[in-house]
Nucleic acid binder design. Sequence first.
DNA 1: CACCCGTGGGG
DNA 2: TCCCCAAGGGT
Length: 357
Amino acid sequence: MSKLATRDGIGSDLLDWYEATKRDLPWRRTRDPYAIWVSEVMLQQTRVETVIPYWERFLERFPTIEALADAPEPDVLKLWEGLGYYSRVRNLQKAAQVVKERHHGIVPDNLDEMRALPGVGPYTAGAVQSIAYDRDVPAVDGNVFRVLSRLYLIEDDIMKPKTRKIFEDLAEFLIPAGRAAAFNQGLMELGARVCVPKNPRCGTCPVQAHCKGFAEGVAESLPVKEKKKPPRPVDMTAAILRDGDRVLIRRRPDKGLLASLWEFPGGERLPDETLEQSLTTHLCQDLGLTVEPLHLFAQVEHTFSHLHWNLRVYECAVRSGQVRVAEDVQWVALADLEDFAFPVAHQKIVKQLVGLI
DNA sequence: CACCCGTGGGG
DNA sequence: TCCCCAAGGGT
Protein backbone atom coordinates (compact mmCIF):
# COMPACT_ATOMS: atom_id res chain seq x y z
CA MET A 1 0.00 0.00 0.00
CA SER A 2 2.98 2.30 0.36
CA LYS A 3 3.10 3.18 -3.31
CA LEU A 4 -0.48 4.32 -2.95
CA ALA A 5 0.45 6.56 -0.06
CA THR A 6 -0.04 9.44 -2.43
CA ARG A 7 -3.62 10.32 -1.78
CA ASP A 8 -2.48 13.20 -4.00
CA GLY A 9 -5.15 15.20 -5.72
CA ILE A 10 -7.53 12.53 -6.89
CA GLY A 11 -9.99 13.23 -4.14
CA SER A 12 -10.26 16.98 -4.52
CA ASP A 13 -10.00 16.95 -8.32
CA LEU A 14 -12.75 14.37 -8.56
CA LEU A 15 -14.94 16.17 -6.02
CA ASP A 16 -14.56 19.49 -7.85
CA TRP A 17 -15.42 17.87 -11.17
CA TYR A 18 -18.40 16.01 -9.70
CA GLU A 19 -19.91 19.01 -7.98
CA ALA A 20 -19.50 21.07 -11.15
CA THR A 21 -20.85 18.59 -13.67
CA LYS A 22 -23.04 16.04 -11.91
CA ARG A 23 -26.29 15.09 -13.60
CA ASP A 24 -29.58 16.17 -12.09
CA LEU A 25 -30.94 12.68 -11.37
CA PRO A 26 -34.22 12.39 -9.46
CA TRP A 27 -32.72 10.34 -6.60
CA ARG A 28 -30.09 13.04 -6.12
CA ARG A 29 -32.89 15.43 -5.12
CA THR A 30 -33.74 13.47 -1.97
CA ARG A 31 -32.02 12.49 1.25
CA ASP A 32 -34.60 9.85 2.09
CA PRO A 33 -32.58 6.67 2.72
CA TYR A 34 -35.45 4.50 1.48
CA ALA A 35 -35.77 6.38 -1.81
CA ILE A 36 -32.01 6.24 -2.33
CA TRP A 37 -32.01 2.53 -1.51
CA VAL A 38 -34.71 1.88 -4.10
CA SER A 39 -32.64 3.71 -6.71
CA GLU A 40 -29.55 1.67 -5.90
CA VAL A 41 -31.43 -1.61 -6.27
CA MET A 42 -32.96 -0.54 -9.57
CA LEU A 43 -29.57 0.60 -10.83
CA GLN A 44 -28.03 -2.82 -10.30
CA GLN A 45 -26.96 -3.94 -13.79
CA THR A 46 -29.41 -1.43 -15.23
CA ARG A 47 -28.94 1.89 -17.06
CA VAL A 48 -29.82 5.24 -15.54
CA GLU A 49 -32.16 6.21 -18.40
CA THR A 50 -34.06 2.95 -18.00
CA VAL A 51 -34.40 3.36 -14.25
CA ILE A 52 -35.68 6.94 -14.05
CA PRO A 53 -39.34 6.31 -15.04
CA TYR A 54 -39.49 3.12 -12.96
CA TRP A 55 -38.13 4.95 -9.90
CA GLU A 56 -40.65 7.76 -10.27
CA ARG A 57 -43.60 5.37 -10.49
CA PHE A 58 -42.33 3.12 -7.70
CA LEU A 59 -41.82 5.96 -5.21
CA GLU A 60 -45.18 7.44 -6.11
CA ARG A 61 -46.96 4.13 -5.47
CA PHE A 62 -44.80 3.04 -2.51
CA PRO A 63 -43.57 6.28 -0.92
CA THR A 64 -42.42 4.74 2.35
CA ILE A 65 -40.89 1.58 3.76
CA GLU A 66 -44.22 0.72 5.33
CA ALA A 67 -46.15 1.21 2.09
CA LEU A 68 -43.82 -1.22 0.35
CA ALA A 69 -43.82 -3.68 3.24
CA ASP A 70 -47.62 -3.82 3.29
CA ALA A 71 -48.20 -3.94 -0.47
CA PRO A 72 -49.52 -7.06 -2.25
CA GLU A 73 -46.60 -8.73 -4.01
CA PRO A 74 -48.35 -8.79 -7.40
CA ASP A 75 -48.64 -4.99 -7.26
CA VAL A 76 -44.95 -4.68 -6.50
CA LEU A 77 -43.99 -7.04 -9.30
CA LYS A 78 -46.21 -5.19 -11.77
CA LEU A 79 -44.31 -1.96 -11.14
CA TRP A 80 -41.04 -3.83 -11.76
CA GLU A 81 -42.31 -5.45 -14.97
CA GLY A 82 -39.74 -5.05 -17.71
CA LEU A 83 -36.85 -4.09 -15.43
CA GLY A 84 -35.51 -7.64 -15.17
CA TYR A 85 -33.76 -9.48 -12.34
CA TYR A 86 -37.09 -9.74 -10.56
CA SER A 87 -35.64 -11.25 -7.39
CA ARG A 88 -34.31 -7.75 -6.72
CA VAL A 89 -37.76 -6.41 -5.95
CA ARG A 90 -38.90 -9.50 -4.08
CA ASN A 91 -35.85 -9.14 -1.83
CA LEU A 92 -36.46 -5.40 -1.54
CA GLN A 93 -39.97 -5.98 -0.27
CA LYS A 94 -38.78 -8.65 2.17
CA ALA A 95 -36.14 -6.23 3.39
CA ALA A 96 -38.77 -3.52 3.80
CA GLN A 97 -40.78 -5.89 5.96
CA VAL A 98 -37.72 -6.60 8.12
CA VAL A 99 -37.03 -2.87 8.48
CA LYS A 100 -40.64 -2.22 9.41
CA GLU A 101 -40.78 -4.95 12.01
CA ARG A 102 -37.29 -4.93 13.46
CA HIS A 103 -35.95 -1.42 12.82
CA HIS A 104 -39.05 0.70 13.54
CA GLY A 105 -39.39 1.41 9.84
CA ILE A 106 -36.04 3.24 9.75
CA VAL A 107 -33.41 2.10 7.26
CA PRO A 108 -30.41 0.98 9.37
CA ASP A 109 -27.66 3.62 9.54
CA ASN A 110 -24.77 1.22 9.74
CA LEU A 111 -23.10 -1.14 7.31
CA ASP A 112 -23.56 -4.41 9.20
CA GLU A 113 -27.30 -4.11 9.78
CA MET A 114 -27.83 -2.97 6.21
CA ARG A 115 -25.78 -5.84 4.82
CA ALA A 116 -27.94 -8.30 6.75
CA LEU A 117 -31.02 -7.34 4.74
CA PRO A 118 -32.02 -9.54 1.78
CA GLY A 119 -30.81 -8.24 -1.57
CA VAL A 120 -28.29 -5.88 0.05
CA GLY A 121 -24.72 -6.75 -0.89
CA PRO A 122 -21.44 -4.91 -0.39
CA TYR A 123 -22.16 -2.35 -3.12
CA THR A 124 -25.71 -1.43 -2.15
CA ALA A 125 -24.88 -1.25 1.55
CA GLY A 126 -21.91 1.02 0.87
CA ALA A 127 -23.87 3.20 -1.52
CA VAL A 128 -26.81 3.76 0.85
CA GLN A 129 -24.63 4.26 3.93
CA SER A 130 -22.40 6.79 2.20
CA ILE A 131 -25.03 8.66 0.19
CA ALA A 132 -27.90 8.68 2.70
CA TYR A 133 -26.00 8.67 6.00
CA ASP A 134 -22.65 10.24 5.07
CA ARG A 135 -20.66 7.29 6.34
CA ASP A 136 -17.14 7.06 4.95
CA VAL A 137 -17.49 3.62 3.40
CA PRO A 138 -16.70 2.61 -0.18
CA ALA A 139 -19.27 1.65 -2.84
CA VAL A 140 -17.52 -0.41 -5.50
CA ASP A 141 -19.57 -1.09 -8.61
CA GLY A 142 -18.56 -1.87 -12.17
CA ASN A 143 -17.70 1.78 -12.83
CA VAL A 144 -15.39 1.95 -9.84
CA PHE A 145 -13.66 -1.27 -10.83
CA ARG A 146 -12.96 0.22 -14.24
CA VAL A 147 -11.89 3.68 -13.04
CA LEU A 148 -9.57 2.40 -10.33
CA SER A 149 -8.09 -0.34 -12.49
CA ARG A 150 -7.07 2.37 -14.98
CA LEU A 151 -5.95 4.99 -12.47
CA TYR A 152 -3.69 2.52 -10.66
CA LEU A 153 -3.10 0.09 -13.53
CA ILE A 154 -4.43 -2.91 -11.66
CA GLU A 155 -4.53 -6.02 -13.83
CA ASP A 156 -6.34 -8.43 -11.51
CA ASP A 157 -9.37 -10.03 -13.18
CA ILE A 158 -12.35 -8.10 -11.81
CA MET A 159 -14.63 -11.10 -12.43
CA LYS A 160 -12.84 -13.05 -9.70
CA PRO A 161 -14.44 -12.64 -6.27
CA LYS A 162 -11.13 -12.34 -4.44
CA THR A 163 -10.25 -9.27 -6.50
CA ARG A 164 -13.05 -7.36 -4.85
CA LYS A 165 -11.14 -6.72 -1.61
CA ILE A 166 -8.24 -5.07 -3.44
CA PHE A 167 -10.57 -2.49 -4.94
CA GLU A 168 -12.64 -2.00 -1.80
CA ASP A 169 -9.55 -1.33 0.27
CA LEU A 170 -8.24 1.11 -2.31
CA ALA A 171 -11.61 2.86 -2.69
CA GLU A 172 -11.89 3.24 1.08
CA PHE A 173 -8.36 4.58 1.36
CA LEU A 174 -9.06 7.23 -1.24
CA ILE A 175 -12.20 8.67 0.40
CA PRO A 176 -11.62 12.27 1.51
CA ALA A 177 -12.72 12.44 5.15
CA GLY A 178 -16.43 13.14 5.45
CA ARG A 179 -16.96 13.23 1.68
CA ALA A 180 -17.77 9.63 0.80
CA ALA A 181 -21.19 10.53 -0.62
CA ALA A 182 -19.83 12.83 -3.29
CA PHE A 183 -16.61 10.89 -3.78
CA ASN A 184 -18.30 7.53 -4.37
CA GLN A 185 -20.82 9.07 -6.74
CA GLY A 186 -18.01 10.99 -8.42
CA LEU A 187 -16.14 7.77 -9.17
CA MET A 188 -19.29 6.21 -10.63
CA GLU A 189 -20.18 9.36 -12.56
CA LEU A 190 -16.68 9.44 -14.01
CA GLY A 191 -16.99 5.80 -15.07
CA ALA A 192 -20.38 6.42 -16.63
CA ARG A 193 -19.53 9.58 -18.58
CA VAL A 194 -15.76 9.84 -19.10
CA CYS A 195 -13.90 6.68 -18.14
CA VAL A 196 -16.26 4.57 -20.24
CA PRO A 197 -15.46 1.00 -21.35
CA LYS A 198 -14.73 1.82 -25.00
CA ASN A 199 -13.17 5.02 -26.37
CA PRO A 200 -12.66 6.62 -22.93
CA ARG A 201 -12.62 10.41 -23.09
CA CYS A 202 -9.23 10.77 -21.46
CA GLY A 203 -8.86 14.21 -23.05
CA THR A 204 -11.51 15.65 -20.75
CA CYS A 205 -10.77 13.53 -17.68
CA PRO A 206 -10.43 15.52 -14.46
CA VAL A 207 -7.93 13.03 -13.02
CA GLN A 208 -5.93 12.27 -16.16
CA ALA A 209 -2.80 13.66 -14.49
CA HIS A 210 -3.07 10.92 -11.86
CA CYS A 211 -3.86 8.09 -14.25
CA LYS A 212 -1.19 5.42 -14.55
CA GLY A 213 -3.18 3.59 -17.21
CA PHE A 214 -3.27 6.71 -19.36
CA ALA A 215 0.41 7.41 -18.79
CA GLU A 216 1.27 3.89 -19.90
CA GLY A 217 -1.15 4.04 -22.83
CA VAL A 218 -3.13 1.01 -21.64
CA ALA A 219 -6.23 2.62 -20.16
CA GLU A 220 -8.62 1.28 -22.75
CA SER A 221 -7.39 -2.30 -22.28
CA LEU A 222 -8.44 -2.18 -18.64
CA PRO A 223 -10.01 -3.59 -16.62
CA VAL A 224 -8.93 -7.18 -17.15
CA LYS A 225 -12.14 -9.16 -17.33
CA GLU A 226 -12.78 -12.75 -18.31
CA LYS A 227 -15.26 -13.13 -21.17
CA LYS A 228 -18.52 -14.75 -20.25
CA LYS A 229 -20.05 -17.65 -22.11
CA PRO A 230 -22.71 -17.03 -24.76
CA PRO A 231 -26.34 -17.79 -23.82
CA ARG A 232 -27.42 -21.41 -24.15
CA PRO A 233 -30.14 -22.00 -26.78
CA VAL A 234 -33.40 -23.50 -25.48
CA ASP A 235 -36.50 -24.48 -27.46
CA MET A 236 -39.72 -23.50 -25.68
CA THR A 237 -43.39 -24.14 -26.34
CA ALA A 238 -46.39 -22.23 -25.07
CA ALA A 239 -50.14 -22.66 -25.57
CA ILE A 240 -52.84 -20.11 -26.22
CA LEU A 241 -56.05 -21.57 -24.81
CA ARG A 242 -59.10 -19.42 -25.46
CA ASP A 243 -62.59 -19.41 -24.03
CA GLY A 244 -64.57 -16.65 -25.66
CA ASP A 245 -62.62 -13.46 -25.06
CA ARG A 246 -60.59 -15.00 -22.26
CA VAL A 247 -57.21 -16.74 -22.32
CA LEU A 248 -55.53 -19.06 -19.84
CA ILE A 249 -52.47 -17.78 -18.01
CA ARG A 250 -50.54 -19.08 -15.07
CA ARG A 251 -48.03 -17.80 -12.56
CA ARG A 252 -44.48 -19.11 -12.67
CA PRO A 253 -42.96 -20.70 -9.55
CA ASP A 254 -41.77 -18.31 -6.85
CA LYS A 255 -38.14 -19.26 -7.36
CA GLY A 256 -35.77 -19.33 -10.29
CA LEU A 257 -36.10 -17.70 -13.70
CA LEU A 258 -38.78 -14.98 -13.91
CA ALA A 259 -40.09 -16.02 -10.52
CA SER A 260 -43.77 -15.23 -9.84
CA LEU A 261 -44.35 -13.58 -13.20
CA TRP A 262 -47.31 -14.66 -15.34
CA GLU A 263 -47.01 -16.54 -18.62
CA PHE A 264 -48.88 -18.56 -21.19
CA PRO A 265 -48.60 -22.19 -20.11
CA GLY A 266 -45.89 -24.34 -21.64
CA GLY A 267 -42.26 -25.03 -21.05
CA GLU A 268 -39.04 -26.38 -22.46
CA ARG A 269 -39.25 -28.60 -25.50
CA LEU A 270 -36.51 -31.21 -25.17
CA PRO A 271 -34.46 -32.07 -28.27
CA ASP A 272 -36.16 -35.43 -28.88
CA GLU A 273 -39.72 -34.26 -28.18
CA THR A 274 -42.46 -33.59 -30.71
CA LEU A 275 -44.60 -30.51 -30.35
CA GLU A 276 -47.51 -32.57 -29.03
CA GLN A 277 -45.32 -34.35 -26.52
CA SER A 278 -43.94 -31.10 -25.22
CA LEU A 279 -47.36 -29.48 -24.85
CA THR A 280 -48.79 -32.60 -23.26
CA THR A 281 -45.95 -32.84 -20.80
CA HIS A 282 -46.31 -29.30 -19.54
CA LEU A 283 -50.06 -28.82 -19.77
CA CYS A 284 -51.06 -32.25 -18.57
CA GLN A 285 -48.69 -32.39 -15.65
CA ASP A 286 -49.20 -28.82 -14.59
CA LEU A 287 -52.85 -28.21 -15.48
CA GLY A 288 -54.40 -31.65 -15.96
CA LEU A 289 -55.20 -31.02 -19.62
CA THR A 290 -54.49 -32.67 -22.92
CA VAL A 291 -54.59 -30.30 -25.85
CA GLU A 292 -54.39 -30.29 -29.62
CA PRO A 293 -52.27 -27.65 -31.33
CA LEU A 294 -54.32 -25.87 -34.02
CA HIS A 295 -51.87 -23.45 -35.58
CA LEU A 296 -48.68 -21.55 -34.90
CA PHE A 297 -49.76 -18.27 -33.30
CA ALA A 298 -46.39 -16.62 -32.83
CA GLN A 299 -42.69 -17.30 -32.73
CA VAL A 300 -40.64 -15.33 -30.25
CA GLU A 301 -36.87 -15.10 -29.93
CA HIS A 302 -35.70 -13.79 -26.58
CA THR A 303 -32.22 -13.59 -25.12
CA PHE A 304 -31.51 -13.57 -21.40
CA SER A 305 -28.10 -13.12 -19.81
CA HIS A 306 -27.48 -16.88 -19.86
CA LEU A 307 -30.26 -18.34 -22.08
CA HIS A 308 -31.67 -17.86 -25.55
CA TRP A 309 -35.30 -18.88 -25.98
CA ASN A 310 -36.78 -19.91 -29.28
CA LEU A 311 -40.41 -19.82 -28.16
CA ARG A 312 -43.10 -21.25 -30.41
CA VAL A 313 -46.62 -20.32 -29.38
CA TYR A 314 -49.52 -22.47 -30.58
CA GLU A 315 -53.19 -21.77 -30.33
CA CYS A 316 -54.63 -24.99 -28.97
CA ALA A 317 -57.95 -26.73 -28.40
CA VAL A 318 -58.63 -28.61 -25.20
CA ARG A 319 -59.04 -32.29 -26.03
CA SER A 320 -59.74 -33.58 -22.55
CA GLY A 321 -59.63 -32.50 -18.95
CA GLN A 322 -60.93 -29.51 -17.07
CA VAL A 323 -58.86 -26.46 -16.20
CA ARG A 324 -58.25 -26.32 -12.48
CA VAL A 325 -58.60 -22.64 -11.85
CA ALA A 326 -56.55 -21.65 -8.84
CA GLU A 327 -54.74 -18.64 -7.51
CA ASP A 328 -51.95 -19.23 -9.98
CA VAL A 329 -54.01 -20.44 -12.96
CA GLN A 330 -56.62 -18.06 -14.34
CA TRP A 331 -58.85 -17.32 -17.31
CA VAL A 332 -58.38 -13.67 -18.04
CA ALA A 333 -60.20 -11.35 -20.45
CA LEU A 334 -57.84 -9.96 -23.08
CA ALA A 335 -58.61 -6.45 -21.89
CA ASP A 336 -57.40 -7.38 -18.38
CA LEU A 337 -54.07 -8.93 -19.37
CA GLU A 338 -52.32 -5.66 -18.69
CA ASP A 339 -53.07 -6.05 -14.98
CA PHE A 340 -50.60 -8.93 -14.74
CA ALA A 341 -46.81 -8.81 -14.79
CA PHE A 342 -45.38 -10.72 -17.74
CA PRO A 343 -41.76 -11.27 -18.74
CA VAL A 344 -40.82 -9.45 -21.95
CA ALA A 345 -40.84 -12.66 -23.99
CA HIS A 346 -44.51 -13.20 -23.13
CA GLN A 347 -45.35 -9.50 -23.42
CA LYS A 348 -44.69 -9.97 -27.11
CA ILE A 349 -47.48 -12.56 -27.15
CA VAL A 350 -49.77 -10.33 -25.10
CA LYS A 351 -49.33 -7.55 -27.65
CA GLN A 352 -50.38 -9.81 -30.53
CA LEU A 353 -53.33 -11.13 -28.55
CA VAL A 354 -54.58 -7.71 -27.48
CA GLY A 355 -54.20 -6.57 -31.08
CA LEU A 356 -56.99 -8.97 -31.93
CA ILE A 357 -59.53 -7.03 -29.92
C1' DC B 1 -15.87 -20.38 -6.76
C1' DA B 2 -19.11 -20.91 -10.58
C1' DC B 3 -23.33 -20.32 -11.90
C1' DC B 4 -27.90 -18.33 -11.91
C1' DC B 5 -30.79 -14.31 -12.56
C1' DG B 6 -33.37 -9.84 -17.42
C1' DT B 7 -33.39 -6.28 -20.30
C1' DG B 8 -32.43 -2.63 -23.72
C1' DG B 9 -28.95 0.23 -25.83
C1' DG B 10 -24.59 1.14 -28.17
C1' DG B 11 -20.46 0.19 -30.95
C1' DT C 1 -25.68 -8.99 -36.64
C1' DC C 2 -23.43 -9.76 -32.68
C1' DC C 3 -21.24 -8.79 -28.65
C1' DC C 4 -20.60 -6.08 -24.74
C1' DC C 5 -22.33 -4.17 -21.21
C1' DA C 6 -25.07 -1.23 -16.89
C1' DA C 7 -24.90 2.03 -9.89
C1' DG C 8 -24.86 -6.74 -8.22
C1' DG C 9 -26.68 -10.32 -5.17
C1' DG C 10 -27.89 -15.13 -3.99
C1' DT C 11 -26.65 -19.78 -3.75
